[in-house]
Design a protein around this nucleic acid. Structure first.
Lengths: 260, 260
DNA sequence: CGACTGATTGAGCGATTTCAAGGGTTGTGG
DNA sequence: CCACAACCCTTGAAATCGCTCAATCAGTCG
């Protein structure tokens, strides 16, 4: 198949949460698909669309957007490379929210039909698909707590912790730094606060020497400190124990010695 | 089977979102299960438990509870009769949050093994299970918007609208009234606000003659008004069009004439 | 009849938003 | 390569919303 790299990213993701036989792995890699480039800030799935394909992010960042009646936008999910953004659309093709590329993004589309057929033939793989949706729901539940019951600084810190771990898990963290493609207003749209207040909270996190943020990268300066402030417990991400340990080692070691 | 009534409730639920053949329906009704009574405010699944059964609510109300590091509790989901509370545990048995009965509740437990076997034999039914989890996730996404981007009064109103529709959908609304088993503090725990402030918002909703609340029942007084204030759009509940129309008719007709 | 739990109300405080304006960065076209 | 425009970040001051603390009232269960 043509876009083997993308399918491999997804397979790696599935393998973090499910054990798959060789046959099942091969079936994933043999899925038909096609590639779409989406430019920044473009919706590629709109509310109410009836989709026929599921979208896999290979490169870039995708946000799931919802809207209140008075036009306020809220980001309810973020998807990094390797995420199948709307795997759920296989069983529920009518989109209940819009999908937008945040910055230029590469998408690989896989037909629902192919996914269904494969899942029917290999029930254990079907369960892996289902499990992936369940983990997404667990992330969502954590966002509810975050937005509902955490003070502003912790809210921002928690999202940053989550993205740090998710980027590290897919090998896109560079030492203690990872890509952070959101603007501060978008960060506000996901944490339920004003861009102004996001800015002040970020300033706090910087002052406390917990992180540094420049040119679309965030550097974790004090991982334990950030984690504590955020009340971050990565259990809900369902990552393998050893991977998690490696990530923590990556972020935690060699505390920076900057500033007296 | 012994608890056919409970399984029938669940089957009805599944049929709202999936078309099932006679064989598939029979398979659902033939599932093995056992019954558990849970007294008020008791956790029957704890964080981190490895479960072997999925829990179906037959009677009462169940809340999914999460906790922040500093002990604040947040309710991330509510489950009414007919809901399979943790169907997702079939593919992900380690509980990522606790389940608590809100008031005395009757649970029917179905073994994961039986659900898996049935799903393997009848792939379309397996997809119905998966779909159910997807709808739960859609509800969760809506809660994120609610808690993140709506002012307090609308937040409370939105939850009330959702529960009104969900109770009506399972035939438990009595005219314009439906059971409301949460205390005001619990309502605060789900909407991310203090019980004091919940109280004031409820008072507002009463003053504006949108609803009445007494002895564990809420009566919808002005459905269009409540819906508008809440910005409520039931799309995310994935209910059949005609059922929804019937529910709206039920709530909307015969506006109450009380009080000059 | 107490003892409890839940609902209600008031006053003061603090967190977050709003409004507003200025400075920096990035990308683009000349 | 520069100039410009657009967008993003940053900061301040005032207003608002929701929280905390505290007390009282109303049902409910033994």
């Amino acid at each position: 198949m043509k876009y083997r790299k993308a399918l491999n990213q997804w397979l790696d993701r599935l393998l973090m949460r499910s054990e798959l036989s060789t046959r099942e792995r091969d079936a994933v890699l043999a899925l038909p698909c096609d590639l779409v480039e989406v430019s920044a800030n473009r919706d590629f799935v709109r509310l109410g669309d009836h989709t026929t394909h599921a979208c896999l992010v290979t490169d870039g960042l995708v946000g799931r957007f919802a809207q209140t009646a008075d036009g306020e936008r809220q980001i309810t999910a973020l998807h990094v490379p390797g995420d199948m953004v709307d795997l759920h659309s296989v069983v529920s093709p009518a989109a209940t929210s819009a999908l937008q590329a945040i910055g230029r993004t590469t998408i690989v589309r896989v037909p629902h039909m192919a996914l269904k057929r494969t899942a029917d033939e290999l029930p254990e793989l079907g369960r892996a698909f289902w499990r992936d949706c369940v983990v997404d729901a667990a992330i969502l539940a954590t966002w509810v707590i975050n937005v509902g019951h955490r003070p502003a600084a912790a809210r921002v810190a928690h999202l940053i912790c989550e993205l740090a771990v998710r980027y590290a898990a897919i090998g896109l963290a560079n030492g203690q730094s990872f890509p952070f493609l959101l603007t501060q207003s978008q960060l506000g749209e996901t944490t339920g606060m004003t861009s102004v207040h996001v800015n002040r909270m970020i300033a706090q996190l910087r002052e406390r020497r917990l992180l540094a943020w420049r040119s679309r990268m965030i550097e974790i300066v004090d991982w334990p400190g950030l984690r504590t402030l955020a009340g971050f417990d990565p259990l809900y991400l369902s990552l393998p124990e050893d991977l998690l340990r490696r990530i923590y080692a990556l972020f935690g070691t060699s505390r920076r010695m900057t500033a007296a």
